[in-house]
Design a protein around this nucleic acid. Structure first.
Lengths: 243, 243
DNA sequence: AGCCGATCTGAGCGGAACTTGAGGATCACG
DNA sequence: CGTGATCCTCAAGTTCCGCTCAGATCGGCT
């Protein structure tokens, strides 16, 4: 059974490869997200049954790698990370991870979880051939429509103008901008931007969306999807053709 | 989306039913393993997408219920229990559970995990009745007849043209397109697209089908099956038999 | 404590989405 | 063919949901 291990720490990787090997896995070790994505393109070989995604500290990248993997393949992903906070867990799972394991973990349990997702199997290799135009996944500062998002500095600028945002406004924008075009449902937004388990009682979300909108001053950027949630309209002509 | 909750504590169950209901699940509550197994035998209704298995202290029984469920059905199971020790975790996962969550848990995380296993979907049930409808579950964008359904973005396009749909219209199309050719019965449609088992009194369903049809402008795509429900006519020349 | 910005809540508005009802079309079956 | 059941269309209601504004509350800072 082939397994793809994504791990940037050589020593951890070596240990894992050894253990997994002893348990019957044929492990391919990728040192970076980029290498992992390369390894996942179908090459006629037996496909990977599981991806073990363990990016050390730059977890932001880990999340991104996860959603990119998910965008291009149906292979099950287990995120393994030191970030144990609930927000990160939820975020990882919502991004498409099948399981989320925090360090330190028990090796036996990890093995059991690997088997669990492996036996559940890959989704119908999501898009066999045709997926030309999909996945404009965002990396680094989002640069579209003149918007620049600096996640580390928590800074946003539009056409060079610096736009000061409050915490919630920024988190909201950061979340939505992760995958421009995809609809984030209300519950998902609440669970990721607010403390989890919190049910938005009043008009909280709408108000923040509102203020985000007029601070950015980019009409049509943040679109409400009635009864579902919100999304960002990506660059191009989204063709707001009416019925 | 139907969900089976197995929980022997009434109060815990009530709370969970409430929360899950608010998050769009149609929850059936089973008080015992026996009841759960009963509930799982196929009865023509929409099948359960996830089982939440939460047997309080008599965990021994919990394990047994899990493996019995697994023996008879491919439905994903999440074990929720107070037993946090590694041995139990491993045991549960090896018995066929898809995830193992220990109390106390974060509600948001539980929801995320439910969604994770639900989107991975049921494995072909090992034992039960002849699975005639091999349900070619659609994962990536559906591409057939020039119609493209992007569930993440909630976008539908026909021959490249973007077709804006309302919520019900989209949900309807998304449901029917899950298994093109298979007839969805009215009650089934109502229980999936509308909340809670509510028998559509008026001509609601027909109206929505109607507007879906002329928005898509693909004559013959959505077919009514008299007295039963609706279905999508798949690509091929399934029956050019004119009369 | 007192200030000030950020966040939350509630009411009202407007419009999109949904529902309902009636009449006409179509189908299955005798 | 005739008839009843079922489905489709159209044009009202009616509900629901997102937007805005204004005031209340929270929380960090001096």
């Amino acid at each position: 059974m082939r397994l793809l291990l994504v791990e940037d720490d050589e020593r951890v990787a070596a240990a894992l490869v050894a253990v997994l090997g002893r348990h019957g896995f044929q492990v391919r070790h990728a040192r970076s997200g980029h290498e992992a994505l390369d390894a996942l393109v179908p090459d006629g070989n037996e496909p990977y049954r599981v991806v073990l995604l363990d990016l050390g500290l730059p977890d932001r990248d880990g999340f991104e790698v996860c959603s990119r993997i998910r965008a291009g393949s149906g292979v099950p992903v287990i995120m393994v990370t030191a970030r144990a906070d609930v927000r990160s867990r939820i975020h990882g799972l919502n991004l498409g991870a099948d399981d989320y394991v925090t360090k330190p973990y028990d090796m036996g349990e990890l093995l059991a979880r690997i088997h669990a997702v492996a036996r559940r199997g890959a989704a119908p290799s999501s898009v066999p051939a045709p997926a030309p135009d999909t996945v404009p996944q965002q990396r680094g500062p989002l640069e579209s429509r003149g918007i620049r998002i600096d996640r580390e500095r928590r800074r946003v600028s539009v056409d060079g103008r610096d736009v000061p945002l409050t915490r919630k406004e920024f988190d909201l924008l950061a979340l939505l901008s992760q995958s421009p075009g995809v609809v984030y449902r209300r519950e998902q937004i609440f669970s990721e931007v607010w403390r989890s388990g919190w049910e938005g009682n009043g008009r909280t979300l709408e108000v923040h969306i509102g203020s985000l909108r007029n601070k950015l001053a980019l009409p049509g950027l943040v679109e409400a999807v009635r009864g579902v949630g919100y999304r960002l309209i990506p660059d191009g002509p989204s063709a707001p053709a009416e019925h």
